[in-house]
Write a protein that binds this DNA or RNA. Structure first.
Lengths: 345, 345
DNA sequence: TTGAAAGCGCTAACAC
DNA sequence: GTGTTAGCGCTTTCAA
């Protein structure tokens, strides 16, 4: 029953040494004889002394907390990311706090300032990528790492998926299946480079295969959520019928796709019989036997391990060149796509 | 472009007042004339000064960080819980750090000690509930709140679901459907009160309706994960056929159920035609049109709002009586259960 | 109402 | 190899 926490001064006094010696011993710093070090370590262990991290941080002028700012931890993609990063950084003695910006750039900026005020030692940011954030990021004196999305004027370290390629292979898959009319349902198009790059990849594929792009059936301001995917489907399928109506859809992420599917199922639109679907992320629920969503994997475990490594580098060797890591996506073919069948055939 | 963060001393000097006056002003403490206060506040705002929270914490002897220790953020139930708690506490000026114990009591204890060393001001704990943790929890001098599960000798504040009731209504639903042989697939039975209470409720229902309990088809050490549910199904369905084989299963949580379903689907066991399934949590994916899992909702948004309220109480009025909050679960009837049909009929 | 000064628990020069 | 001492940036008595 430790009634109160000891201070380093108390420990020093009990051991009849100076606080600095204790400090050196517990921090594995040089300048203590082995015998004294051992004595101190044993004693400290015995009485259960642990240095006050707050005091350490203040004295050292830096903490060991890193902030992870992302859209929404309830998105399984981010939950995986956060889990991985947290676990990796944990083993290196860092502690990470996760902040949900809810895809709102004002919250994001608030959290960035917050991290600064709290003297976090670094920031891992999945930005919503507004012009505003851009300004804040560049005038930040904290080590920062952008994950998944980069801003326009950023030239620091990042770890991202090759989203252009992701969009390209998703579209190509559909094209190879014979689809001619393919629509894109995008997350905040203007603000998210991730979504925008995927869109560009899709456009490129269309172009390369001489297919036309029909903006009428595309949506560009979706909010990455299941409900939004549901609403998107409602909107699209309530459009008056036309020969131009798409036979396949690209959805910006799996959550949107799941919502989209839900609407379809409820309204007798069969997948993949009536329309084909491809999305991005490969969250675990997409692989469920009853779901079988064809999707482009971003390899989240790879992203989180790379991001952890880069962050640790940034923290421990600040002088190093910025690291720019791009990860190749992979198409996971499952069951929401099938060969295009002409109505007349 | 603020090159460096100002200190309170610098601000004071610029304003030709003392640091204490600045401190009082920015903390809304009494003892400053309105005119001076206003002047300080305006200036501080203008130059973008923010007090160093680390220094504040050290000086005050307490921080405003609360630790949330839970099993695994990748479980959507916990993601929802964490999201809600974080959002609520955020608006009260607290910052919450989430730790994943991975259902390992040693990690849990490590995190508890950690929170102490870092001078967190409070802990919200979803314990794995080992005897070990029990000891640590009770000799803790930090405000602590147990969520979802309580330990044997705990007599502090908690917010939990009525898990006995949850188990009872789940089983009763199946019984009303005519099922006679109902099996229970449990999370760590011995260590989790949540799971154990659900099991007890189930046993009680069996008893009340004069049904027999057959341990042979129950499993008690599952690990709350999808893969584990999959393995559980494999294990059960590889048992040699018998007239006692259950026609319905209760699964400790939705993730287990999803994995269980996956195995069944893959092996031609139809749900609900061949076997009925009920589980607990009502994560969002259970409601998907293609899934339609019948489950018992714990009302996670209610849990998180109550937990937040109680934690804030604990922090701000430490003298108050412990709060003990029990939330009633609700059965969500969907599509993984159906009336029992005798093979001969 | 305001300011001076001590101190929170630790680290890191600097001296011995 | 070890100890002394001066901060880190803030809050909070206490005195004015």
């Amino acid at each position: 029953m430790d009634k109160h926490s000891y201070t380093i001064a108390e420990v020093a006094k009990m051991l009849k040494v100076s606080p600095s010696t204790v400090s050196r011993a517990i921090n594995n710093a040089p300048g203590v004889s082995d015998s004294v070090r051992e004595k101190i370590l044993n004693f400290v262990d015995e009485i259960g002394y642990r240095p006050n991290t707050i005091a350490q941080s203040l004295s050292r002028g830096k903490s060991n907390m890193v902030a992870l700012i992302l859209g929404d931890i309830r998105n399984p993609f981010y939950a995986d990311l956060a889990f991985g990063i947290q676990k990796n950084l944990d083993t290196h003695g860092y502690i990470v706090t996760t902040f949900n910006s809810e895809y709102d750039y004002r919250k994001e900026i608030e959290f960035i300032q917050f991290a600064k005020q709290y003297h976090y030692c670094g920031i891992i940011l999945v930005t919503v990528n507004s012009k505003e954030a851009d300004k804040y990021i560049n005038k930040l004196e904290l080590p920062i790492l952008l994950v998944n999305r980069i801003t326009e004027h950023y030239n620091g370290s990042f770890v991202v998926t090759d989203n252009f390629q992701a969009g390209y292979i998703a579209a190509r898959h559909l094209i190879n299946l014979g689809h001619k009319k393919i629509s894109f349902m995008s997350g905040h198009h203007k603000s998210s480079t991730a979504s925008y790059q995927r869109f560009l990849g899709y456009r490129q594929a269309l172009k390369n295969y001489c297919l036309s792009y029909n903006e009428q059936y595309c949506l560009f301001d979706l909010n990455w959520k299941m409900e939004t995917g549901y609403e998107a489907a409602k909107k699209i399928f309530s459009l008056s019928p036309s020969p131009d109506f798409p036979s396949a859809f690209l959805l910006s992420n799996d959550l949107l796709a799941l919502g989209f599917m839900d609407y379809c199922e409820e309204h007798g639109i069969r997948i993949p019989d009536d329309v084909s679907l491809v999305s991005f992320d490969n969250i675990v629920y997409s692989g469920l036997h009853r779901i079988q969503l064809t999707t482009v994997s971003q390899h989240v475990e790879k992203i989180s391990s790379e991001a952890s490594k880069v962050m640790i580098d940034l923290l421990e060797e600040p002088s190093k060149e910025p690291r720019k890591i791009i990860i190749e996506p992979t198409l996971i073919e499952r069951n929401t796509t099938r060969a295009y069948k002409n109505a007349e055939s």
